[in-house]
Design a protein around this nucleic acid. Structure first.
Ligand SMILES: [Mn+2]
Ligand SMILES: [Mn+2]
Ligand SMILES: [Mn+2]
Ligand SMILES: [Mn+2]
Lengths: 159, 159
DNA sequence: CATAAAGTTTAGCCGAGGTTACATTATCAT
DNA sequence: ATGATAATGTAACCTCGGCTAAACTTTATG
């Protein structure tokens, strides 16, 4: 079971097209990591917008509940979002979106709904669509979102 | 522009069905976070498997290149994966998958390909499909993956 | 065979995002 | 009015996944 001793130097460089292929791979991984990094702020502003619509205001205790996270995590995160000028709040008070935050929230809300609608049109149950969309939404390019929209529209018409 | 002073206490609890809705939301967020946490190890074992197929062995320098990350990041991560018994290696030597790691890698490879094929069948370009799939693959439930597979098969047949 | 180059490891730093325990403040009820 | 309770904040800790700099090992080469 001991791994056989292999040379430390790498094999000779791959062909030209293979090198391009490598670069594309790296781009894919990098892009995915960038999307993951944006996930928190996207979900937070979307949630704040939801809460304001549903209950008139966004309180951190409700955010913690919906996110399934402790209130301390919410406290630390909203401080970062305030530094980024996406939200605004004062101690012991409700949370508000800045214009910048509101605009991001609306883009995220729309995209979220589009992904959910697409998965549903594809035949996925409501529950699974809602759960999967929460992750998928952060990784759909404009091109993919467009293709999803077309499919949803056609499927709706065709039924 | 100062936010109006609002009461600190939250609004009265929502109705029964609304509470269930809250729980589902929390589940969606939690699931998405769990999938994000699994992303690194899934991508690493898949990549190691790819490299072994393509070049006969997996070296950390090649992994760093493909992942678009420093070789030190790879070193730290593979130590974790070894602790989890997904991979095996000795100092200055190539990296091997344990049976557990190999099995995970094969599941991930298959899922990755299915997502790429699905996006392509949907009309997304090869480049965008490859990039988006790298993130989406970690968030597709069995149910969604199944729906994707059905769609891909039908579209292939129908063309 | 000596040494340069390539690859790997180690040490130490950082920010994000999670936690528990405890302190503080604002609202509600008596 | 005041005291209990709910909400918010703060301190201290953790892991993960990035990084740079520097040391070390292995392989290749003159
Ligand atoms: Mn989300
Ligand atoms: Mn969302
Ligand atoms: Mn991936
Ligand atoms: Mn993949």
């Amino acid at each position: 079971m001991t791994p056989s001793r292999k040379p430390a130097r790498r094999k000779p460089a791959p062909s030209r097209s293979a090198a391009e292929q490598e670069a594309l791979r790296a781009t894919a991984f990098r892009t995915s990591r960038r999307h993951n990094a944006a996930e928190t702020e996207e979900d937070y502003v979307e949630l704040i917008d939801d809460l304001i619509r549903e209950r008139g205001e966004a309180r951190s205790v409700d955010m913690a509940q919906r996110l399934g996270v402790s209130h301390v995590t919410v406290a630390k995160t909203i401080r970062r979002l305030r530094d980024k000028e996406l939200i605004q709040y004062e101690p012991y008070r409700a949370i508000f979106l800045t214009p910048k935050g509101k605009s991001l929230a609306e883009r995220c809300r729309g995209r979220h709904q589009q992904v959910v609608d697409f998965l549903t049109a594809l035949g996925v149950s409501t529950r699974a669509a809602e759960v999967d969309a929460e992750g998928i939404e952060h990784h759909v390019s404009a091109e993919t979102l467009d293709a999803m929209r077309r499919f949803t529209r056609e499927r709706r018409k065709g039924s």
